[in-house]
Structure formats: structure tokens, C-alpha cells
Simulated assay, not measured.
Amino acid sequence: MRGVHLLSSLVVLALASFLASATDPGPLQDFCVAVNDIKTGLFVNGKFCKNPDDVVAEDFFTSGLDMPGDTSNKVGSNVTTVNVDRIPGLNTLGITLVRIDYAPYGENPPHTHPRATEILVVAEGTLEVGFVTSNPQNKLFTKILKKGDVFVFPIGLIHFQFNRGHENAVAFAGLSSQNPGVITIANAVFGSNPRINPDVLTKAFQVDKNVIDYLQKQFWVPN
């Protein structure tokens, strides 16, 4: 019995250690500006880092987020991402910024970020936003947001934004990972490569196979 308790304790400690590390690792230096030069760089957290003596203010800077993105696509939205590829100084700092533009009645369709919580602020327009909790509750939390309103989407949960207005809308969001990832539900389910067996989706969605065939033939916007 004592051995069982010891094993249980070890399992709990291992799980706690895993959960504590299930996010971007904390940096052990002031910064680690990403570079592609493997001759002069130091390899840290998956990137080569610039010699700190060569770092300049431009490594922590970008511009152009005042420019609207092209929303002339089927979903009527555009996501402009500011990550380590755009600001090398973001490397190891565990954060990403996005600008999201919405055409009238455009949407950022249901999706998840497997490695990040998202906090969104509306800069212009009116958005209907929401997220759904995990099984078995699948509870929807939804809100109408106006300019200046802020909403949080917890890590890994399916969420969306929809422009309810007749005018363009703009939002900015911060995500708590250098590489938050994104899985757009419709794209993943109906636009996978290769396609998921239609018999699987027919049973999963409880619809006629013709519906699945139709959906799998659509062009899914990689937003």
C-alpha cells in the first residue's frame, strides 16, 4: 500500500511538472533577438540569436499596423500577424500580436489556438464574439463588443468573431505564445489533405453523405 501511495505521489508530481511547462519557457536572459546567421548566432529555443552587442532598437520594432488587411475573401476577414518573423526581438518572450480586419458581416470563423490564450480589444465597429467550453457542457459564452471593449478567449477553446455592422470593423489581439498556432475548424475538418473519409464525417455530423461531399469540395480560406 505504501508503494502505491509513493507511485501516486510521483505521478502527481510528474503531471504538475508537465502542466507547469505546458507553455512557452521563460527566457533566462534579457532578450534573444532571432537571426538566420548560424555562423554568428547562438542557438536558443529553436532560433539562432544575435550577439547582444550587435542588437539595435530596430530589432524590437515594426510598423504598418495602421494599414487595413484585404478582406475580399469568402469569410470577409483578414488577420495580420506580428510575431518573431516580423519583430526578431520577440523571440523567447512568449507573445504574439495580431490585427484583425472585418468587412461588413465578415467573420473570423470558429478556430482554436492550441498554445495560447487570446485577449482581444475592438478598435472600430461592433463584433459578436464567443467561445465554447469543452465536452460535455459545450457551453457558449458570447458577448456583443463595441469600440474599446475587451474579451478573453481561453487557451485551446473554439472561438469566433463576427462583424454585425454595416461598416468595417477592426480589432487587435495579444496571444500568450511566440507560436500560438491556429486550427480553423471548417478548414481542418473539410479541407484536410488528404481528405477525411466521408463515411467518418457523415456519421460524425449525422447528415447525408452528399452534404459532406459538397463541403469537402469547397475552397476553405486559410485565414
Rank of each mutant, 00 (worst) to 15 (best):
D199W: 03
I185V: 11
L97E: 00
R115G: 07
T117M: 15
V121W: 01
E107H: 15
D149S: 11
E118V: 02
I158H: 07
G125R: 03
F153I: 01
I100H: 07
R195M: 11
G89M: 03
A173C: 11
F151H: 04
L175G: 09
L97M: 15
E107P: 03
P88G: 08
L120R: 05
F151E: 03
H159G: 08
F141Q: 11
N168D: 12
P194K: 02
P180H: 07
A188Q: 08
N179C: 10
I183N: 11
H113G: 01
P104T: 06
T126S: 14
K147A: 14
T126L: 07
A186Y: 00
F153G: 02
G174C: 12
D101R: 06
S134N: 14
T184H: 05
V152G: 04
T96E: 11
V200K: 01
P198S: 09
G106S: 01
G165A: 13
N187C: 10
V98I: 15
Y102R: 01
A171T: 09
Y102K: 01
N179G: 10
I95V: 15
L201Y: 02
F172L: 08
A169Y: 07
E167N: 15
F160M: 09
F160I: 09
I95G: 07
V129R: 03
I100K: 09
F172I: 10
F162M: 10
L97A: 12
H166K: 12
G89S: 04
R99G: 02
V84Q: 15
V170D: 04
A186K: 01
R86L: 14
K143F: 08
F190N: 05
L90Y: 14
P198T: 08
G89A: 04
T133E: 13
S134M: 12
P110T: 02
T92P: 05
L175Q: 10
I87W: 08
G130S: 06
K143E: 13
H113K: 00
F160T: 05
A116Y: 06
L140R: 12
H111L: 01
I155R: 15
N135P: 02
T112G: 01
V122E: 01
Q178Y: 08
E107F: 15
A186N: 08
N179R: 12
L120E: 09
N197H: 11
D101H: 06
N193Q: 11
A171R: 08
D85T: 11
P136E: 07
K147Q: 15
F153E: 02
K147M: 14
A169W: 06
G181T: 06
L127D: 00
L175N: 09
D199N: 12
F131K: 01
